[in-house]
Simulated assay, not measured.
Amino acid sequence: MSPRPTVLAVLLCLAGGASAQDLATTCRIASTYDLTVRPDALVFDRAEPAPRTVRMHDGALATDGRPVALRPDEQDRVALFERQVRVLVPKAKAIANDGVDIAARAVRDEAATAAPQAVASGELDRVLNGRVADIKRRIATSQSTRDWQEDAMRAYAQEIVGDVAPLFANEVGGEAMQLAMNGDLQGAAALRDRVATVSTGGQARVVARVEAALRPRIQALCPSIRELQELQSGLRDSSGRPLNLIESGE
């Protein structure tokens, strides 16, 4: 299994096209684990290789269900690792929430070009606001980074697009038909071209806006994540293998 950019970097993939590899290079950190933040423990898990499960709580460490014997200084590092992760999680969720808002605003701006009547009527805002609220609820209640990884972020973006696409189709289709029926074939063609431009270039513009807004905040968290990498240094699993929850990115 190849290391993925850590969850804090993957947040920039919200709009579905941000380069995860580029972000791994920016922070130079990655992980093959998913993280579940439970009230009683941090649980890291992956399909392979071993250790497949790593559990931390209050200075105690277990891998694949077996406790790891730790020196007092190692217990302190495990406890500090857990504490710092719990501090970072709400910051990550805040970035994710803001990313949803930025993506929604960018979609609205694109819609103002392709379907201005839907914007003017308030229908687009109603649909967008409902979807944004739903996604934010899911982020707020989530305990697992699986809900923040690239695939999840793409799914959220697709949900937003899926909600607004019918509005585009209804307005543009009706307007184009009316123009054609009135004999304005050139106007109908121009309308289709305008929509095609939004469809082909809109996603890239949304991605660019999300990246530009969130990248500095992601970079600001990179030192904290590197500190986690330093805290795990020297720790080993129950079989004596080095514990690499966070790795250096390619």
Rank of each mutant, 00 (worst) to 15 (best):
T6Y: 14
T6S: 11
V7F: 12
L8T: 13
L8V: 15
L8H: 11
L8F: 14
A9W: 07
A9C: 13
V10N: 14
L12M: 10
L12I: 10
L12E: 09
C13E: 14
L14V: 14
G17V: 12
G17D: 15
A18K: 11
A18R: 13
S19L: 06
S19F: 06
S19I: 08
A20P: 14
D22N: 12
D22V: 11
D22I: 08
D22A: 15
L23T: 09
T26A: 14
C27Q: 04
C27K: 05
C27L: 10
C27E: 03
R28G: 10
R28N: 13
I29V: 14
T32F: 08
Y33C: 06
D34K: 14
T36W: 15
T36M: 15
V37M: 05
V37A: 06
R38E: 15
P39I: 03
P39H: 09
D40N: 15
A41H: 12
A41Y: 15
V43H: 12
F44A: 02
F44W: 12
D45F: 15
R46E: 05
R46D: 06
P49D: 00
A50P: 15
A50S: 10
A50L: 07
A50C: 06
P51V: 04
R52F: 11
T53A: 15
V54A: 05
V54Y: 02
M56W: 04
H57E: 13
H57R: 11
G59L: 04
G59P: 07
G59E: 01
A60D: 08
A60W: 12
L61V: 01
A62V: 00
T63S: 12
D64N: 05
D64H: 06
G65W: 05
R66F: 02
R66C: 03
P67N: 03
V68F: 03
V68Y: 03
V68N: 02
V68P: 00
L70D: 00
L70V: 02
R71S: 12
R71M: 11
P72R: 07
P72A: 01
P72G: 02
E74L: 01
D76V: 02
D76H: 05
D76F: 04
R77V: 02
V78Y: 00
A79Q: 00
A79P: 01
F81Q: 00
E82K: 03
E82S: 08
E82P: 04
R83W: 05
V85Y: 05
R86W: 05
V87T: 10
V87S: 07
L88A: 05
L88Q: 04
V89D: 07
V89C: 05
P90R: 05
P90K: 04
P90Y: 02
K91I: 09
K91A: 13
K91Y: 08
K93S: 03
A94M: 07
A94F: 09
I95L: 06
I95P: 07
A96P: 05
N97V: 02
N97D: 09
D98V: 03
V100R: 06
V100L: 07
